[in-house]
């Protein structure tokens, strides 16, 4: 599903965030991405979401060569993804409902469908009672869950999450992880960047570890045990 082939990313000024990275994530896999901050986790996610382009190498997601996409292709490609951002990236002057509804509105779904699906997604993250609130009225953890509801509302092919449990207490973290696992059960590919090693250790999924832009675990081995 996600295929990296000798991917490097150098920024202006010569800093190399990723060096000749190759790995493969199969369709329906659940994978953790770990590493210290600055190891290249966020850069890797930015490459998959086509926010940035690799300096060299090739990335294929669901068979699509990201390199050859034009602006319009990128827009439609991103609709396949459910992205959870570390800094939430919510629309601050829209209600929680509107925030979660955005991916469906962008895709032109009809309003009654949108209402039903947004309510289902908000119910899953336990925020159904807050649908009329503005993000600013919510705690950091609640905002994080709005972002998660928005990422899953469209039942994406791939869920990409950058520290999705960073602001959540352990009980909520477990709930969110089991939510991701539910989606994984119905075939969604999940890639979660996290440095919550305790959480990762408890869940028996494959782990990709980055260190200074290189993969330090065997990239194709399956299972952490």
């Amino acid at each position: 599903m996600i295929h990296f082939d000798q991917v490097s990313k150098r920024y202006d000024g010569g800093f190399e965030a990723l060096s000749s990275l190759s790995f493969n994530i199969d369709k329906g896999e659940f994978v953790f991405l770990t590493g210290h901050s600055g190891a290249g986790k966020s850069t890797l996610l930015k490459l998959i979401t086509a926010i940035e382009k690799p300096s060299s190498g090739q990335i294929r997601v669901d068979g699509i060569q990201l390199k050859t996409m034009n602006r319009r292709d990128i827009a439609f490609y991103r609709r396949k993804l459910g992205i959870v951002h570390q800094d939430h990236q919510l629309l601050m002057n829209h209600s929680v409902f509107d925030n979660v509804a955005q991916p469906l509105i962008v895709a032109g779904e009809n309003p009654s469908d949108i209402k039903r699906r947004v309510h289902a997604a908000l119910d899953k993250v336990g925020l159904l009672s807050r649908e009329k609130f503005k993000p600013i009225q919510l705690s950091g953890g609640e905002q994080q869950r709005v972002g998660i509801a928005r990422a899953v509302v469209k039942k994406p092919d791939v869920i990409l999450a950058d520290e999705p449990t960073g602001n959540l207490d352990p009980a909520l973290s477990r709930d969110i992880m089991s939510l991701f696992a539910q989606f994984n059960d119905i075939g969604t590919t999940v890639l979660i960047a996290s440095h919550d090693l305790g959480l990762i250790a408890r869940l028996n999924y494959r782990v990709l570890s980055l260190k200074q832009g290189r993969m330090i675990t065997s990239p194709f081995a399956s299972g952490a045990a």
Binding site: T49, A75, F76, H85, L90
Partner: peptide, 16 residues
């Protein structure tokens, strides 16, 4: 600007 950046990440086309 911030709002536009967000909806672009959600798959909004330039026309949208």
């Amino acid at each position: 600007k911030a709002e536009i950046q967000i909806i672009k990440l959600l798959g909004a086309t330039d026309n949208y």
